[in-house]
């Protein structure tokens, strides 16, 4: 579904992502872990071109999206993204947040979009919040709405950029539960996270990034029980024994 070839991204002479290649197939749940500043968020943001790569190529469903002639809006509408800071639109109600893109992009009529929104809100248990404004929601509720907003476009793949890092510990669970459910339904996901439990349970492949490079990529069992790269061993010993 997504093929990344020798991707790199340079910021002012600094390589944030350095020659990363990856193959993401339909149904994959790729979990990317690594220390802060390792380039994992930048890598994720390159996938939907929120960051424009300075080198390499990305193919999405056969289309070379790094080609300047690509209709990037069309591509992005098939890739949902969930942000660390939620980025809900504060001037719109929950329903407004969810229906804005489907209606404006003429994917659905307003009425149809609201039906979809209601169905998705019901799934994450937030039906009663449909007319609330983001400021009236807790962090966990905001993130669940943000997930619903992305899902409302019926994307082929979902990108999660540290979705639980800005949450109070007690709210992490409710967001991970939703993500786990989506994974079980077969949604293709790329998740940048520090939640090792989630990586172990849900990931089909776990990737370790450090200094802009992929240092190790393995199945979750292999990744956690038998890490090979010394930097990963060190990283895991620190995170798991914290």
């Amino acid at each position: 579904m997504i093929t990344v070839k020798h991707l790199s991204k340079e910021f002012d002479g600094q390589l944030a992502v350095d020659d990363v290649s990856m193959e993401i197939n339909k149904g994959d749940k790729i979990v990317v872990v690594g220390p802060s500043g390792s380039g994992k968020s930048t890598f994720l943001r390159c996938l939907n071109l929120l960051e424009v790569p300075t080198g390499g190529e990305i193919f999405f469903e056969g289309q070379r999206i790094t080609d300047p002639k690509t209709d990037i809006n069309e591509v992005r509408s098939k890739m949902g993204m969930v942000f660390q800071q939620f980025n809900l639109f504060p001037h719109l109600t929950v329903l407004g947040n969810i229906t804005l893109a489907p209606v404006r992009l003429k994917r659905q009529t307003k009425q149809k979009a609201e039906e979809t929104a209601n169905r998705l809100l019901d799934r994450v248990g937030l039906t009663d919040k449909r007319d609330a404004y983001p400021a009236q929601l807790s962090g966990g509720q905001k993130q669940r709405i943000a997930i619903v907003r992305a899902l409302a476009m019926n994307p082929d793949v979902m990108l999660f950029d540290e979705p639980t890092s800005a949450l109070d510990p007690e709210m992490v669970g409710e967001v991970l539960d939703v993500m786990r459910e989506l994974a079980e339904e077969g949604l293709t996901m790329v998740v940048v996270t520090h939640e090792m439990g989630f990586a172990k349970q849900v990931g089909t492949r776990v990737t370790f990034m450090d200094e802009g490079r992929i240092k190790e990529e393995a199945s979750p069992e292999e990744f956690f029980s038998n890490p090979k790269h010394p930097r990963l061993k060190d990283f895991l010993s620190k995170v798991l024994n914290a």
Partner: peptide, 10 residues
């Protein structure tokens, strides 16, 4: 805010 909008395909 703009990133969220663009990521939805707007």
């Amino acid at each position: 805010q703009a990133e969220a909008g663009r990521s939805l395909g707007l």
